[in-house]
């Protein structure tokens, strides 16, 4: 099923500005960068987390560790998916005990990915705080989950699909609204 492109809602500069703002908010909210660890949720949360780490370094001069989380093993829909998702590596380089963890993902939608990520994190240890940063919040939550840092709120219909494209994965930067054909 090919998706129909409706509109580009954020361009490359827009993505960068949103991330720079989130980087500042992270530092401000946590009164610095002490104990902060960024955790990117595979797949597009990972380059976003790395970029946030870079922007924070430009502001504060501190290197924030970045971890990678694969949530496949924690999904609640494994038994209903037609094709089985491939498990990728989870790589969290530091002990998360007592840390301030910031989960990073591209789009917040039903909240189920974040639910799975929270379970996956808790299995790795007990952080002091977990916060959530997303580039796009498109609504339609199915679980009581909200983001602490949002790049842009985008009201959508359920027939629409938000596509975040990042240079590291897709060779371009930007956000598009696509639509499933009738």
């Amino acid at each position: 099923m090919a998706l129909i492109e409706k509109a580009q809602i954020i361009d490359a500069d827009g993505v960068r500005r949103a991330l720079v703002r989130i980087a500042h908010e992270i530092v401000e909210r946590n009164k610095g960068t002490e104990n902060v660890v960024l955790i990117g949720i595979r797949r597009r949360g990972v380059p976003l987390a790395q970029r946030l780490s870079r922007f924070i370094k430009e502001v504060e001069g501190v290197e924030i560790p970045v971890g990678v989380l694969d949530i496949t093993l924690y999904r609640d829909d494994l038994s209903t998916l037609a094709s089985q998702p491939v498990v990728h590596k989870t790589e969290v380089p530091v002990a998360i005990q007592g840390k301030t963890l910031i989960l990073v993902d591209d789009v917040l939608y039903t909240g189920r990915t974040v639910r799975a990520a929270l379970d996956a994190i808790i299995d790795l240890g007990r952080p002091a705080v977990i916060q959530l940063a997303v580039l796009i919040d498109r609504g339609h939550r199915e679980l009581p989950i909200r983001a602490d840092y949002v790049g842009k709120n985008v009201p959508t219909s359920k027939r629409e699909v938000i596509e975040v494209r990042l240079e590291e994965v897709d060779r371009v930067n930007g956000v598009w609204i696509m639509e499933k054909p009738e």
Binding site: L73, Y74, V86, V87, K89, T90, E91, D123, L124, G125
Partner: peptide, 23 residues
């Protein structure tokens, strides 16, 4: 290849303090 790749991802679980996933 799929089995070998999947094993590569799952091996990390064996190094955890809590060696358990709910899958």
């Amino acid at each position: 290849q799929l089995i070998l790749e999947t094993a590569g991802s799952l091996k990390e679980i064996l190094t955890r303090e809590i060696k358990k996933v709910p899958t």
